[in-house]
């Protein structure tokens, strides 16, 4: 025991700031929220234990919960592939060996840094307003565009476009992945006269699979958690007509607008389970389409 302490004490001492942060600011609140999810808690009076009531209400009576799930799933299903395709496409262009590539890399990465900021969300609202910049451009070609953001039929797509625009970080990872594919494979394919499309499906995609998988998992998790941009664009409550009622926005409203912290905590735990299930599914499916170089079949 003493040996353990003398050997590890310096290490833990250096870790202390992080450990304190983890137990106080992360683990503590997580456990607290688990407890609160079984209570009725309005943030002013003390929490009152209600057992599974919150979860039962959520699945049996709460129409907005299902609406929020619907909106969030639609978004994830559209935004994740859109962003990954965009990221891969740009990565492949950059991989062709442009001059001053580091400059382009930086420029293309920029939207990812800005994308989740409040300023961009406000800009987005202006761009896609009835009298916004997008419609101004469309009017040149004689199209009278709708009010993209306040029309519930199109509002979700403006967010998908925003997600697509922030392709920077998966793009960088794709670029690194592309760089690690041996060039002689393509040379051999050239000699055999393999068309470019087949080179892409037979060489690039299979060899890039681990990287695609990595990006897929991270981006899916990211998409489920989208909050700040939607919060601003939807005026904080999923407007218009709940078409932007993302799960996180619904959760926030239950907690901070309607003072149902207990119920909101239950919602948070359900979101955790949903994300865990999707990540788990991705890992299970990866056996069939992701192969690593050092693996033998």
């Amino acid at each position: 025991m003493r040996r353990f302490i003398t050997r590890n004490a310096p290490g833990y001492t250096f870790l202390l700031p992080w450990l304190i942060g983890f137990f106080l600011l992360t683990l503590g609140p997580i456990l607290a929220s688990l407890y609160l999810s079984f209570t009725k808690y309005d943030m002013v009076s003390a929490p009152r234990w209600v057992g599974w009531d919150n979860y039962v209400y959520m699945f049996t009576r709460d129409r907005r919960f299902w609406k929020a799930l619907h909106v969030t799933f639609s978004y994830v299903a559209l935004a994740v592939p859109a962003r990954l395709i965009m990221a891969l496409a740009v990565a492949m262009i950059l991989d062709k060996g442009l001059r001053s590539i580091s400059l382009y890399r930086a420029i293309f990465y920029l939207p990812s840094l800005l994308g989740s900021s409040i300023a961009i969300a406000i800009l987005w609202r202006q761009l896609f307003a009835k009298d916004g910049a997008v419609n101004a451009v469309l009017s040149f070609v004689g199209i009278d565009g709708p009010s993209w953001i306040t029309d519930p039929n199109t509002s979700l797509y403006t967010l998908v476009v925003l997600a697509m625009w922030q392709f920077g970080s998966p793009m960088l990872i794709f670029l690194a992945g592309l760089r690690s594919i041996p060039k002689d494979l393509y040379e051999a394919a050239e000699i055999d006269g393999t068309p470019a499309w087949r080179q892409f499906t037979r060489i690039t995609l299979p060899l890039l699979a681990p990287v695609i998988f990595f990006n897929l998992v991270l981006q899916t998790i990211d998409a489920f958690k989208t909050f700040s941009s939607v919060f601003i664009i939807s005026h904080g409550n999923g407007a218009p007509a709940d078409s932007l009622l993302f799960y996180t926005v619904y959760l926030f409203n239950e907690a901070f607008s309607f003072f149902r912290m207990g119920y909101a905590s239950a919602l948070a735990w359900v979101l955790l389970v949903i994300i865990a299930v999707f990540t788990g599914l991705a890992f299970l499916s990866s056996k069939y389409w992701v192969h690593y170089e050092n693996e033998r079949d």
Partner: peptide, 22 residues
């Protein structure tokens, strides 16, 4: 990678909970 995943996850969860623990 799992580490990043878990940490980011915990981040969200904390959001709702943090207020109550403050």
């Amino acid at each position: 990678m799992t580490k990043i995943t878990r940490r980011t996850l915990l981040g969200t969860m904390g959001a709702a909970a943090a207020a109550s623990a403050m």
